[in-house]
Structures are given as structure tokens and as C-alpha cells.
Design a protein around this nucleic acid. Sequence first.
DNA 1: CGGAATCCAGGTTGATACTG
DNA 2: CAGTATCAACCTGGATTCCG
Lengths: 133, 133
Amino acid sequence: METPVSTEAVEPPPFDVFARACPSRETLEHVTGRWGSLTVGALREGPCRFNELRRRVDGVSEKMLSQTLQALERDGIVHREAQPTNPPRVDYELTPLGREVAGRLASLIHLLEGSMEQVLTARQAYDTTRGSR
Amino acid sequence: METPVSTEAVEPPPFDVFARACPSRETLEHVTGRWGSLTVGALREGPCRFNELRRRVDGVSEKMLSQTLQALERDGIVHREAQPTNPPRVDYELTPLGREVAGRLASLIHLLEGSMEQVLTARQAYDTTRGSR
DNA sequence: CGGAATCCAGGTTGATACTG
DNA sequence: CAGTATCAACCTGGATTCCG
């Protein structure tokens, strides 16, 4: 018996974020980026129009929100539903994959929000120790 | 019965990453930032020296790794253990909080690595639909 | 080895203005 | 409303050099 060789791919390519060239690293960055994580988190509350999303994500500019949404839509994390009405109405919502991602992200966010006292204490300790080097 | 009022803070301040000025947003960015997530992920495999960490996180420069580690140390996510030997030896490891964070991050990373086929397919669909607008 | 400091190019950001 | 275009300003990140 020879090494089995089929005409179709026998094994899915391994994806590893720790490797510089792996496309999974890009997606991780889209999802965890400065506005990516907040946008996904905001969409977790339900479908949302562009400007409402802007309000939920305090501080994001139109441009950044637009760019972020496009990257997330391209990766299949967010679904964009445009209605050809006038004035235009566009709704964004998470895809099934997006909901899974959002869940894990929310878990991280909640952990951090709940640990901020501890973080703030650590910062003070660090600053008095190293700040006044 | 009156509303209970004690002399010490009755309620911990609410932390909300979606609010522009909340310090939790900074910590989220340290943890999910371009190198933050990979550094924390790499430290999950165990304590590690500076240059070994550089090898684990493919593509980081000394400067970025150094900056990233300092931010994470300040937030109490990473512990730095320096030995005053010559040559110097410094070990980094996750704190208990860091391990919790790393766990949630790993969960997200694994999800994404396992979904990349789907993501790549979504990208192709997007590019053929919108790319040739 | 483990960093800190400096320099600098280029990418990212966010007003502002404009379009459909 | 839902974006896109433009542009200056800022910041990121890499390379290099030097120190303990």
C-alpha cells in the first residue's frame, strides 16, 4: 500500500494564529481590533442600523465603523441587509459564526469588567514601583 | 429599614467597555491588541524568557514585545521575574488573572482557527460580489 | 541576554465635507 | 440615513544602536 493520495484535499490546512502568514491572524485582528471587538459586542444585543451602532459604540467615527463592518462582513462574521428605500435603511446583524465569536468575546469582556478593581490596584502598585524608578 | 449606607463604598463602580472613557477599554485593548492576544496566548504554554517569547510570537519586534509586556504587567495580567545575574535572565508568566484571560482568549482563537475554511469561503463570496462592483 | 532610546517611514485615525 | 472622499495629524511599528 502506498501513501494514500486522493484527488481531493485529504486534510484541511492547519491554521495557526501564531504563524506570521496565517490568514487566521487577520481574522483574529478584525475581531479583536480596537473597534472590532466593540462592534461585535454591540451587535450581540441584536440587529442594528448603522447610526444606532455608532451610538452603541461610544467614540467610533463613521469611517472606522464603516471599515470595521466591511472587514467583519467579508469574514462572514456580520451580515449586512440593505433595503433600497429612500432614505436608505441598512441593518447589520451577526451571522451564526458571528454569534459564536461574540459569545466568546463577551465572556472575555465580562471577565475584564469584573476584574477592573484588581487591574486598577495592579496599576497603582506598578506605577509606584516603576513609575518613580 | 432604610437603604443600607455604610461608611465604605457601597457599590463598586460599574465598568463598561462600551463607554469611551472607561479604563476597562484600555485593558481590553492591551489584551486583544495586535500583539497582546498573541503574547498572552503564547504564555499560556508556560513561563517563558524574553527571546523565547519572541520566537513563539512569530513576527514581533523587540520593541513591540517589550511594550506589550509592560502594558500587560502593569494591568496585572503578566508577572515579570528578573534575576540580577549576568547575563540577565528574565522570566514572564501569567498571573492568576492572566490565566483566566488567556483561557477565554484561547477559546476565541481556537474557534477562529477551526472556522477558517468558512471564513475563507465567505471572503471569496464577498470578493466576487462586491469586489467586481 | 534583556532591554531602553532614538529615528523615521508609512499606516491608521478622525474631522469635515459631500453624495445618493 | 448611510455611507464615501479627502486630508492633516497622530501613532504604530521596525531597524538600529547602546547600556547593564
